Computed example of a mutant assay.
Amino acid sequence: MIDTVVFDFDGTLADTNQMIINSFRHIYGMFLNKECSEDYIMSTFGEPLNLTLTRDFGQFDFDEVINAYRDYQRTKFNDEVTLYETVEETLEYLKNKDIKLGVATSRFKNSTMKALERFNIAKYFDSVVSADDVTKHKPDKEPLIKVITELKSTSNRTLYVGDSKFDIECALNAAATPVLVGWQSNSRELADKYNIEHVLEKMWDLTGMIK
């Protein structure tokens, strides 16, 4: 029986896609004086930001690059980010059913908590594990296992809801059940590649999996 649901944040709970794309375009223009393709940026979704920035901007001071990225997001977050349809209603329903809820994200802790508080959904989660809480990142199982442990649950009773290959592989590596959101452009491709049984059309569909 499922008694625990853990969520990714970006692309799963909140539509941050365009803001992330715009943030990368901003720093590519600022530091490298060139454009960056949307397909490449989207291929990094789910990867810890520091890994992406170190790989692509290694010749620059890391703090300068990440500060420029964060500065852009601070000014644009309220205009460019929204919760996906039925997210808050679903979280409230699950919480009222005494389902344990957590977040395992590749975001940094500070920005994760600010985002959850911005949308007034932090109250639903008893464990939030971010990139700076672990030494190994998705697709490694460590972030998800840490949430499951903090929630005093077990992998076989846990759903992990995400939108990227990193989320799917993290769930599989942790022996939890992967649940894929169906609203990203590559959702069907990922579902087919990983033979995912549970694909959500909207977040509320998750309630049908909880008995």
Rank of each mutant, 00 (worst) to 15 (best):
S164Q: 08
K165P: 13
K165D: 15
K165L: 12
F166Y: 15
I168G: 11
E169Y: 13
E169C: 14
C170M: 15
C170I: 10
C170L: 09
C170D: 08
C170E: 11
C170Q: 13
A171G: 10
A171I: 05
L172P: 14
L172C: 14
N173S: 15
A174K: 12
T177P: 13
T177Q: 13
T177Y: 08
P178H: 04
P178N: 07
P178K: 05
P178A: 08
V179T: 04
L180R: 05
L180M: 08
L180I: 02
L180N: 04
V181A: 05
V181D: 03
V181Y: 03
G182K: 00
G182T: 00
G182Y: 00
W183D: 06
W183Y: 05
W183R: 12
Q184V: 06
Q184R: 11
S185K: 11
N186A: 03
N186G: 05
N186W: 04
S187L: 08
S187W: 10
S187K: 01
S187R: 10
S187V: 10
S187Y: 07
S187H: 11
R188D: 14
R188W: 11
R188S: 10
E189W: 04
L190C: 11
A191H: 02
A191D: 03
D192E: 13
D192I: 04
D192L: 08
K193T: 06
K193L: 12
Y194H: 12
Y194A: 02
Y194T: 06
Y194N: 12
N195L: 06
N195W: 04
N195Q: 11
I196P: 00
I196G: 00
I196M: 00
I196A: 00
I196R: 01
E197H: 06
E197N: 07
E197D: 04
E197Y: 01
H198Q: 03
H198V: 05
H198G: 02
V199W: 01
V199I: 09
V199Q: 01
